[in-house]
Design a protein around this nucleic acid. Sequence first.
DNA 1: TTATTATTTAAACAAATGTTTAAATTTGTA
DNA 2: TACAAATTTAAACATTTGTTTAAATAATAA
Lengths: 226, 226
Amino acid sequence: MTKIKQQLDTRNALIQSGIKLFGEYGLNGTSTRMLSHDCGANIALISYHFGNKEGLYEACLDYISLRIQDYIKGTYVTLGDIIRKEKPTAHEAKQVIDSIIETMLTMFLVHEEPKSWNVLISREQSNPTPAFDIIYDSIIKRIQQDLTRMIAIYIGRDPNSEESKIRSHIFISQVLGFITSRESFLRHMGTDNLSQAQIGKTRKVVKEYIDTVLNGLRACQLKEAE
Amino acid sequence: MTKIKQQLDTRNALIQSGIKLFGEYGLNGTSTRMLSHDCGANIALISYHFGNKEGLYEACLDYISLRIQDYIKGTYVTLGDIIRKEKPTAHEAKQVIDSIIETMLTMFLVHEEPKSWNVLISREQSNPTPAFDIIYDSIIKRIQQDLTRMIAIYIGRDPNSEESKIRSHIFISQVLGFITSRESFLRHMGTDNLSQAQIGKTRKVVKEYIDTVLNGLRACQLKEAE
DNA sequence: TTATTATTTAAACAAATGTTTAAATTTGTA
DNA sequence: TACAAATTTAAACATTTGTTTAAATAATAA
């Protein structure tokens, strides 16, 4: 076993335990002994590899950030050309919107590994630590900007207006609510875990909802001069 | 000074400090010494009045729960009759929806005291502690149920379907996102604090948005048999 | 093979933490 | 006014916590 391999094993084991435990108990509610016990690494290795507990927390967010960027890379490969266009068509803009939403829904509702990221992201969203920048700058900001622009283009509004920023925030919140208010949603649905049928319904209702609002806003615009 | 008055002063001072500090640092990140120092009460008074730190946390949520119920009481006084009707009209249902949303926006964006509640609510939403029931059972559940039904009635769908539950979750998330993703929103808006002008724009964009989606869904329904 | 570097370990440290305890003080009641 | 009850205080306690330390072990390079 090479040095690099072994180092990554211990280091990575701590990161995986970190994502799980920090997600469940928060930074302050997770002790170095919990982390050590969870992955079997000696407690001194936290400061050896990461400097201190906060360093491990940041490493967890770095890891999640990279993985999410990987996760959405597929989406952005096919959409990058449209996004970079000076003037995408409304049809093109709608493609971007749909793809981003689809990716988010899949990430939030379907795949198993991302579920462990979601809890930590949800924590950071509602109560940012100093490490929030890691997630914000690499992922959230980009999605905000892209959706602000694409939505405005699709509905025929000014992409640079504050109204467009507000609108995209509302738009993103529609989907983000499945992780930031997950417990409320589950209780309302009367379950501890969404069934495949429930997930299917959710995706369908989301799609109907956003198509309706986007087309409604677009139709308003075709009738009025902004 | 009577006993009851004095007791309430110390007890209440601890609760106010609790709301502030638990909101900012979380339950685990707030020490009994911080609480004691913030309001000047001796540290032993936490267990004296509340049993332990968790008891104080619960008391804070109880306080917030009562205050929010008070806050929305005005809204529910005028809407109660409609909500209790077996078959409200679509017009009536829309009145309920608009009033609830207006109340939530005011609470989340405008008034100063509720702002201190919002942080703690946001925390509980995204990462429920055992005390989440306090807020859920008294407030969130009711709003979920009422909006599920009113939205379904307005757009002509079945109020008891799972789709209606999902739809109302999306609907609530549109507004809740202003507290559960507050940092992201502020950064996107390029400010640390929303100006009055920005708040005004936000309310206007929200109203346009939800009117559009509700009327869009309603129009779909008038064209299709569900 | 030896020396160097990197990793890991077990123990220790200093501080922080939530809670308890007993005494002092204040308040309320008869 | 005296006594009882309630509240408050300061100190102490036991545990937990994050981190450090020095030695042991493993891996790498010459």
